[in-house]
Nucleic acid binder design. Structure first.
Length: 233
DNA sequence: ACTAATCTAATCAGCGCCCCGCTGATTAGCACATTAGT
């Protein structure tokens, strides 16, 4: 039953039936015939068998509030209508069993479309929230990129100072441990430039190169040589 | 296997209100709906 419902749900939701009508398939052709027949019957005063209210006034169509209330109650208990219940309900409400069956069919259809509407609203809400979150994340990335740029600029400045006249840089070197290379120590870098990331999986020896990720290409040769020169390795 | 009952989806038409939504009823089902009882 679930499979069938899903299939029918799929059919109704995703297949544009106006296509069939417009393209004149068998289904599209059969409708006007039925329409004509109904209209002819209506003109003749015959409402298809006349089983409405036992052949009463065809205009007296609306169910009373009590009838609807009872039907609603029954529908809430069980949405499918087996014969016994249908006959019992019909007798209780003074209706034709066919009317009860039709009411349940329509009620199921309307219930389903209401559920679909609710489901759509829920999905739309989730979609909007996801879009908002994406915007926030993009802003965060922008902020982090700006910080990274500033940090790189700072690194460049310190490096050029260290390789230049040695004025301020010398002080910095002394403060970092007495060796020029100490300014590139992992601890210093992490504290001064937490923006650097992606190095956490490195081993103890790799720490020496953490502050120069952009030079990863030659860190194994030139930088190591440079460190060796200053007695760090 | 056959058949009657039942289902879904689409549509129509009347009614209560003001142009359209709600609701009861009808129809098809197309590689010819599915399900249950015989």
């Amino acid at each position: 039953m679930d499979k069938q419902q899903h299939q029918q749900l799929f059919d109704s939701s995703y297949v544009d039936t106006s296509f069939f009508v417009a393209s004149g398939t068998a289904q599209g052709e059969s409708r006007p015939r039925a329409r004509r027949r109904r209209r002819r019957a209506a003109r003749c005063g015959d409402v298809d068998g006349g089983d409405l209210d036992g052949g009463g006034d065809p205009k007296k169509r609306r169910l009373s509030d009590e009838q609807v209330e009872m039907l609603e109650l029954s529908f809430r208990e069980e949405r499918k209508l087996e014969t016994g219940r249908k006959v019992h309900l019909a007798a209780e409400l003074g209706l034709d069993p066919k009317q009860v069956a039709v009411w349940f069919q329509n009620r199921r259809a309307r219930h389903k479309s209401k559920l679909l509407e609710e489901e759509f609203a829920k999905l739309k809400h989730a979609h909007d929230a996801a879009i908002l979150n994406k915007c926030h994340l993009e802003n965060e990335v922008l902020r982090l990129k700006e910080r990274l740029g500033a940090t790189e600029e700072e690194v460049r400045r310190l490096r050029s100072a260290a390789s230049g006249d040695g004025g301020d840089a010398a002080g910095a070197v002394v403060a970092c441990g007495g060796s020029p290379s100490s300014s590139f120590s992992a601890g210093t870098c992490h504290q001064q430039h937490p923006g650097f990331s992606g190095q956490d999986v490195m081993g103890p020896d790799d720490d020496l190169m953490m502050c120069v990720p952009e030079y990863g290409g030659y860190a194994d040769s030139s930088v190591v040589e440079w460190f060796s020169l200053y007695g760090l390795m």
